[in-house]
Structures are given as structure tokens and as C-alpha cells.
């Protein structure tokens, strides 16, 4: 996983609530066996018309937002399915940080597994950042994970909360599976206790 430390980049405003994972990447693009190449389908219905032409009014089709690496949205971002194709599509487009009042749980989890930082800030602050992001070429924000701060174009800073273990994993770009495998003996010991306590959970091998 790519580490996330600090990012100064164009921020794109997407002032919509309940941006669901079907909107982020429709199901018909999930028929892939790769993690990459999904950026072209990101926000497909918002971004392209029925003939596949770009909709000129959609934010990611406009300059400077084609190069956006930060996205700012409203409540319940990423609701719906568990498809990790949603963060993969965002990442493939270039988005490394999403700022919103809140996120759906599974999407929120999935971001951390892919080096994307989801930042929860109040609706009022998100709206202020959306106003910042609407400044065109000046729409640059800095998101610093170590100090847990978003810096606005006017120099003001906003602090955000993050789970300490998730912060560490992002900063280091940890291979979580590798980390967990180092606990293999604890897992094996648990399995022994669990099998003794719940002998009625049979194996599925036929």
C-alpha cells in the first residue's frame, strides 16, 4: 500500500450527500480481475453523457479539477456496496484524500486499505472547504496526516481526528496482512480454545 504522509493538491468540490458506490463506479465496470484501470469509469454517469461524451459541467471534467487529488463532499459518502472498486477507481483517477462530514463504514475501511485518507469534518467546515475548492487554480489544500491538519488557501488550519492505529498504518503504508501473520501463534491458540468452546461449528470441506 502507498503510504500517506502529506499532500498539497487541487481539491475538487462535490457538494452532494449520499454519494453511493454505484455512483462512484457502476456495477457493470466491476467485471475486472485487476485493481487498476478503473479511473476512466469514476463517476461514470455524472461524468459522461449517454454517448460517452464528457459532461462539461461536471467538476472533474473542468480545469484545474482534472488534476484533483482531494475531493470534498457532503454526508454519508460511499454508502451502498462493499465494492473496493470504488476506492480503486478514485485512486486510479488520482484522488488520495476525501473530506466529508461522514462516510459509510465499509467504504471508510476500504479507503485505509488503499492509502486513501478519509477525513471527517463538520458540515460547516466542509462547506467552507468547498468554497475554497471553488476558487479554480487557487483551489489547493494541504492535508498533513502527521499533524492531523488541513490547511486552507487563506492559511487557516483545521484539525481532524483519526484512529491512531489507522494513522500509523497509513503513514507507514503497512502491509496489514503481513502484520497480522506475525500474530499467527495467537490466532492458532485462539482456534484451539474456540474449537473446544464451540465444537458444533463443523468444517465445510466435503
Amino acid at each position: 500500500m502507498p503510504p500517506f504522509t502529506s499532500l498539497t493538491a487541487i481539491a475538487a468540490p462535490l457538494p452532494l450527500a449520499n454519494v453511493d458506490t454505484d455512483k462512484i463506479i457502476p456495477a457493470r465496470f466491476l467485471k475486472t480481475i485487476a485493481r487498476t484501470g478503473l479511473g476512466v469509469h469514476l463517476f461514470d454517469a455524472l461524468r459522461y453523457d449517454e454517448h460517452g461524451a464528457e459532461r462539461p459541467d461536471f467538476v472533474l471534467n473542468r480545469e484545474p479539477y482534472r488534476a484533483a487529488q482531494i475531493l470534498i463532499a457532503h454526508e454519508n459518502f460511499g454508502c451502498g456496496s462493499s465494492r473496493e472498486h470504488a476506492p480503486w477507481a478514485l485512486l486510479d483517477f488520482g484522488i488520495r484524500c476525501i473530506i466529508a462530514p461522514d462516510f459509510a463504514d465499509i467504504f471508510h475501511n476500504n479507503c485505509f486499505k488503499n492509502g486513501i485518507l478519509p477525513v471527517r469534518l463538520s458540515r460547516a467546515i466542509c462547506d467552507a472547504l468547498i468554497a475554497d475548492a471553488s476558487l479554480g487554480p487557487n483551489a489547493r489544500l494541504t492535508v498533513d496526516l502527521e499533524s492531523q491538519i488541513v490547511a486552507r488557501p487563506n492559511g487557516e488550519t483545521v484539525a481532524f481526528d483519526i484512529d491512531p492505529s489507522r494513522k500509523r498504518a497509513l503513514l507507514l503504508g503497512l502491509d496489514e496482512i503481513g502484520e497480522t501473520l506475525q500474530r499467527a501463534s495467537a490466532i492458532a491458540a485462539f482456534e484451539g480454545r474456540h474449537r473446544a468452546a464451540s465444537p458444533w461449528i463443523p468444517g465445510l470441506a466435503s
Binding site: 485493481r35 473496493e84 476506492p87 465499509i106 497480522t180 500474530r183 490466532i187
Partner: peptide
């Protein structure tokens, strides 16, 4: 019972566990 992303699918396949709060 809950839904997980593909990275977590891989985590469960490899370790039979998940990191959760």
C-alpha cells in the same frame, strides 16, 4: 455477519481474522 472489501477478503483468506473496532 458483515460485508467487507477485497483487501479484507484477502486478509481473511490469509489469516482467518479481521482488524475491527
Amino acid at each position: 455477519a458483515f460485508g467487507i472489501g477485497t483487501s479484507e477478503v484477502e486478509h481473511v483468506l490469509a489469516t482467518q481474522t479481521l482488524l475491527q473496532k
